[in-house]
Amino acid sequence: MKYTYYPGCSLEVSSRSYNDSALAVSELLGVELVELEDWNCCGATVYLSYEELISFSLCARNLALAEKYDRDLVVPCSSCYTSLMKTASYIQENADLRDKINQALQAAGLEYKGKVNIKHLLEVYIKDIGLDAIKSKVKRELKGLKVAPYYGCQIVRPLHGFDDPENPTSLDRLIEALGATPVYFPNKTSCCGSSLIATNEELAFRMQKDLLLCAAGNDAEVIITVCPLCHMALDAYQKGVGKMYGFNFKIPVLHFTQLMGLALEIPSRKLGIKTGLVPLNKALTAYI
């Protein structure tokens, strides 16, 4: 199966291990990811706060570029996924916005007809490839590994439709397909506060503390994420959060594609397993 791939700025600049592992796992599962040529930033929450029309236009440029190919657009970052999905749906719903975006696109010699189908990478694996197919490719079952499935907010909200907005289960089922055990994790869709980390660290840390406590309290040996921003928040800031609240958190955080890669026996170097700031624990090193 061939898809157009939109990695987004974070995967290019600060979460390269997510990009590497996503490409490696996809290749093994027969998912061909062709990078969208000359893609630009989706605007994320930050540009959208500044001026919505320009931010939507930035997304529309990506959609217009993707429309040239008759393929679904795959996005591994939840923030980019929401930005692109939101733009696509508002172009359909709001005539005034559609008109203005078309004028902006036309000025740049582009056109978007509204035909691109956007999917998150997890959605592709779960829906298009299927858990049975993934299970059949598993070479090393991650038996007994206790995994906290962290979805974050923007993969299931606002109503994207591919999983429940408050109690999603796709990641849980994927973990089971890999032979590991999803732990009880009621905070699975709580916000990680990543959009506030630069402007209000104290608030963001408080939100991350709740997440880490929930994972630690349910004996998780690893947390997996579906968004580079959630990964950064929980991995890079974990030590700082622990220091602020007096906890010695040591829970490794992996991109979900890295965990899949381990079960599919992809060499750990190719997956960038050791690039996390939280050191790996015994439970994980057993599979490397």
């Binding site: 907010c153 606002p158 916000c191």
Partner: peptide
């Protein structure tokens, strides 16, 4: 303060 988690919206 809104961290854009969309819980209110859903």
């Amino acid at each position: 303060m809104c961290s854009s988690c969309y819980l209110c919206t859903v």
